[in-house]
Design a protein around this nucleic acid. Structure first.
Lengths: 135, 135, 135, 135
DNA sequence: GTGGTCTAGACCACG
DNA sequence: GTGGTCTAGACCACC
């Protein structure tokens, strides 16, 4: 199944990050497998109606991470996924992300229960998306 | 209890956001109570070795959120909590925060269940902390 | 129709407020419609012969109010209208505006009835104006 | 009846202006008559728990306007009220005040009807206050 | 002393 | 090209 990238130009998240994030996630969720081919810089830029430089930057970032490879003349491919972080290191990185969400959520006047519910709801939506790709 | 703000000038997170974040956190945990006076713009700027304008911007943002009040000539104070944003707007702002956590969490190879559990655990810690400050 | 902003540097009203005020007015009267692009920070600063930071601050304030959106690298646009503040907060902010009008009006020796009449008259003019822009 | 001045230190309106405004209004509404004595700078400062300099500045402003006179050694008194502005000039000054209220009110998402109602309601409150003083 | 406003000019991220 | 952030330093209003 081809990767379907969605861009929100109104968001404060930079476009190139939206792209890298979605590809990274596609790999993490199994939607993109090792060896899969991605659209060319030009093709993706055109289909998203954005600047080719922006796509190039996203691909470039991912190539530096080793998540994909550009084979000149052939195209762009997902390369082997490597588990670089230890479980413990992953937890260490996760914690501040959670704390940020909690403190900002509380500043927005949400109770712990509301935050919990909103988080669970959003998680379910993500899982549904993932489920659909496996059909 | 005095608030101790720490700044990391090397971080990609803007300084003024590091400040707002830590003050929000102080309020959320109960370390900062309604009516508490914060250090003056100049004093905080000096102790952090940053420009007063940067502190002023942080205070300004929080004042707009209704978290604190600036009284020209007198100082800066934690204000009584009130619902400044509409619920709809609050939800609109909460959503991207949650999505960031989920997508980064998944990029870290955590399952939905693990994320949910980690979030719930962290929330419980916050509530305990807050309880302690209310003694 | 292009928005024509006029600045009075001699006024005691801060420049950034003169700007926000005129843009708010443009939106309220319908002269500025959703999706319209505003002049860039630098362009407006140059045409008004003021510092770009001052324009940026005005735009920033309006963005926080939800009246416009800044898209880094692309420009500044009028955003779809939405209820950003809670009704309670909106009323809280409206009240001092009304009180100022009343006390200044009374200082000008107008009776309550005269003020009421003048206000109603002005309101009608606004509605006519707005109607014209919607044609 | 003695003048009862109320100060709101949390307001964005400077304290000295709150004082001048209330005295000006007391005269306009007849609550303060020509020849009435005002509390001394020191006495008023103490009763309001504010800085004497602030009271002095307020009295000073009003003395410059000719609304009150300080008679050294005797006290501060309301002096003759003079109608300085022509009716037409008053109207010219009133109009922009009304327009500001309307455009800001609309930016706060209030309809013309809501603005009209809020204005009428606030006006009634002012009249009740005035009425009470005449009892 | 306090915060508010403005300028001038720099550097960065983004498209 | 766009806006975002930060610094340095000035002047003002207020207390």
């Amino acid at each position: 199944m081809a990767l379907n990238i969605n861009i929100n130009t109104g968001s404060s998240v930079p476009i190139y990050k939206q792209i890298t994030e979605q590809i990274r996630l596609g790999v993490a969720t199994g939607r993109l497998a090792v060896g899969d081919q991605l659209p060319s810089v030009r093709a993706l830029a055109e289909s998203l109606a954005i600047n080719p430089n922006t796509v190039a930057r996203a691909y470039n970032d991912l190539a530096h991470e080793g998540l994909l490879e550009t084979q000149p003349g052939r195209g762009v491919f997902i390369s082997a996924k490597r588990q670089v972080l230890s479980r413990e290191e992953s937890r260490r990185r996760l914690e501040p992300l959670i704390n940020t969400l909690i403190s900002e959520g509380m500043a927005l006047n949400f109770s712990a229960e509301e935050l919990q519910a909103a988080f669970a709801k959003q998680l379910r939506q993500w899982q549904n998306e993932k489920g659909n790709h496996h059909e």
